[in-house]
Design a binder for these strands. Structure first.
Length: 271
DNA sequence: ACTGGCTCCTGAGGGC
DNA sequence: TGCCCTCAGGAGCCAG
C-alpha cells in the first residue's frame, strides 16, 4: 500500500495528534511483524514526550528524548489515530496510547510492517543508514542518478525500487514516473543518457508531488476512520491498466513481468 | 560489487 | 458454495 506519498500523508495526518504528547503505554497484541516487536518499546516509550514525527524513505520516526520509535507499514499497514478505548479489530497489532485518551493504532493484515525502537540516532540504525537520498530533496539530482546508474545492467524500474539508490519510490510510482519520462521499465539502467536521467528525476518528483497533493493513491486522512481512498488512483497513467488504452496515445498498455513484480508501460510513448 | 530469486503473511478475485 | 490458483503498494537476505 504505502509508498512515499502514502507514508508522508500518514505522517502529516498523525503529526498534529501526537506531537508534544506523552506516551501513556504501548499495547502489543501481536509482536510477530516483519521483525518481532521489541520489548524495549513497551518499556522505554511510555512516559516519553514525542518531540517530532519524521519520515525517512518509507519509515516513520517518532522521536523522543530517550530514543526513536521506527515504524514501517510494509505492504498492508495503516496507522490511525483513534480513541484508545475503541475495541481492536482483527489485525490491529500495536497501539501507542497517548496521554489524552487517544492512541496511534497499527493495523497490518500481512504483517510485513515493523515497529522498532532505537536509543541511538535513527540515521545510524541499520535499516536507515544505507538509504539513498530523498527523491524530493536536492541531493536526488540528474547528475546523481546518472552516476548511480553507470555500469548497471538491471532494469531501471528495479533500480528505482532499490532504496539504496533512492528512498521511498515503490512499484506504482516507479512505473508512473517512467511513463512520464518516456522510458521503458525494462531499459537497462546503465543505458540512460544524461537527458534521460534528468527527465526521470523530474518525472519522479512530479509524480510524487502530484500524488501527495491527491493524498496518496489509496488513502489519505487518518483522522477519518472510514478508509477514505486517496485520489491519485484516478490519475494513474499506466499502473494497473494492462490492456487499457494509453491516456496519451490510445495504444493498449502493456504488462511486463520484471523479476517477481509487474511493470506497466506504453510501447509507443516509452522507449 | 551486482544480480536475481526467495521469503515472510493474509486477503481478494477469478476460473471451474 | 467451495477449492485452488495467482496476485498485491516492501525489502531484507542470501547464494552465485
Amino acid at each position: 500500500m504505502p509508498e512515499l506519498p502514502e507514508v508522508e500523508t500518514t505522517r502529516r495526518g498523525i503529526e498534529p495528534h501526537v506531537l508534544g504528547r506523552r506516551v501513556a503505554r504501548v499495547v502489543v497484541r501481536d509482536a510477530r511483524l516483519r521483525w518481532r516487536v521489541p520489548k524495549a518499546i513497551a518499556k522505554e516509550l511510555p512516559g516519553q514526550r514525542i518531540n517530532a514525527v519524521n519520515r525517512r524513505g518509507k519509515y516513520l520516526l517518532l522521536a523522543t528524548d530517550a530514543g526513536t520509535a521506527i515504524l514501517h507499514l510494509g505492504m498492508s499497514g495503516r496507522l490511525r489515530v483513534i480513541d484508545a478505548e475503541e475495541p481492536p479489530a482483527k489485525h490491529d497489532h500495536v497501539d501507542i496510547v497517548l496521554d489524552n485518551g487517544r492512541a496511534l493504532r497499527l493495523h497490518d493484515p500481512r504483517r510485513f510492517g515493523a515497529v522498532l525502537w532505537t536509543a541511538a540516532p535513527p540515521e545510524d540504525h541499520k535499516l536507515l543508514a544505507g538509504l539513498g537520498p530523498e527523491p524530493l530533496e536536492p541531493a536526488f539530482s540528474p547528475a546523481y542518478l546518472y552516476a548511480a546508474t553507470r555500469g548497471r545492467r538491471r532494469a531501471i524500474r528495479d533500480v528505482l525500487l532499490d532504496a539504496r539508490i533512492v528512498a521511498g519510490v515503490g512499484n506504482i510510482y516507479a512505473n508512473e514516473a517512467l511513463f512520464r519520462a518516456g522510458i521503458r521499465p525494462s531499459r537497462p539502467a546503465g543505458r540512460l543518457s544524461r537527458p534521460d536521467a534528468a527527465r526521470l528525476v523530474r518525472g519522479i518528483r512530479a509524480t510524487l508531488r502530484h500524488a501527495l497533493r491527491a493524498g496518496g493513491t489509496t488513502f489519505r486522512d487518518y483522522r477519518d476512520s472510514n478508509g477514505d481512498p486517496g485520489y491519485f488512483q484516478l490519475a494513474l497513467k499506466v499502473y494497473g491498466r494492462a490492456g487499457v488504452p494509453c491516456r496519451a496515445c490510445g495504444t493498449p498498455v502493456r504488462l511486463l513481468r520484471l523479476g517477481q513484480r509487474s511493470a506497466f508501460y506504453c510501447r509507443r510513448c516509452q522507449h
